[in-house]
Design a binder for these strands. Structure first.
Lengths: 133, 133
DNA sequence: CCTTACGTTGACGTAAACGTCAAGTACGAC
DNA sequence: GTCGTACTTGACGTTTACGTCAACGTAAGG
């Protein structure tokens, strides 16, 4: 799958931290918590594209207010999608549907919030035009 | 505004906690942090509909991963919308637009996530039909 | 009068998610 | 060789958002 052109880019801690907008401490912490498992070159960590992708997933989860535990559950599932065991795929699928339902609920919640916020903003604009004719 | 029919319902800590699905500790903590300021009947807290509404706003903020500080900022702004000072309305409006922009960004983020999740689910279903003909 | 239920404040505990040293290693530049 | 930079592990500190007693007051019911 990897053509000779794409040499499978890797990152050091500092590089990846910079690129993702986190600190190296965060990367090491996530590793200690088992969320990512970079390779090693001697003692130094070597992050692969897979690690990079997992990190982006994790950070997105965090933006949605998920705990690291929930984030781990999800990234692990993404990996498990290539599983060949029927039983495992079934439970995975069930969990994914739950998550999708949750996300849809959040969407609705967000929509309502956005409506409210823009309403309040509209009120503000109304009062402002009243005050300054 | 309050007709004789609606007697301005109030809540005790326990009642409100039950209704909102939080603990009394949470309500007292939010009060200590200045997020809500219930009246008192002697020593006992009496929560008004306003407190109830503020709490629902706060809890929604929390579901979106906001800190209590950010939540406070927002509920305070909702109150400030009735302000009559032009200067204050201006800054309030600016902040509201920022928040709206952020919410829209979250919406897009959420949409992408939902697409991904349903994609992975589709993969799962594909493999499952392969396995069980 | 005693229990039960609900309320109060205050103090301390805790889990999550990192931040912040400290002390040491490795490597290229000068 | 030593300077600067980036990496390592380990230990302890910190903030947030509550949980968990403890010790006490009060109003209702049997």
């Amino acid at each position: 799958m990897t053509s000779k052109a794409e040499v499978a880019r890797t990152w050091t801690v500092g590089e990846l931290a910079d690129e993702l907008g986190v600190t190296t401490r965060t990367l090491r912490f996530y590793e200690a918590e088992g969320l990512i498992t970079p390779q090693r070159a001697g003692a130094n960590r070597v992050y692969s594209q897979r690690d990079h992708a997992r990190m982006r997933l994790i950070l997105r989860g965090r933006r949605f207010g998920m705990t690291l535990g929930e984030c781990r559950e999800i990234v692990d599932m993404y990996d498990g999608a290539e599983s060949s065991e029927q039983r495992q795929l079934q439970t995975l699928l069930g969990r994914l549907d739950e998550i999708a339902a949750d996300l849809r609920a959040r969407q609705a919640d967000l929509r309502r919030t956005l409506v409210e916020v823009t309403d309040v903003a509209a009120q503000c604009r109304g009062r402002l035009t009243e005050l300054a004719p």
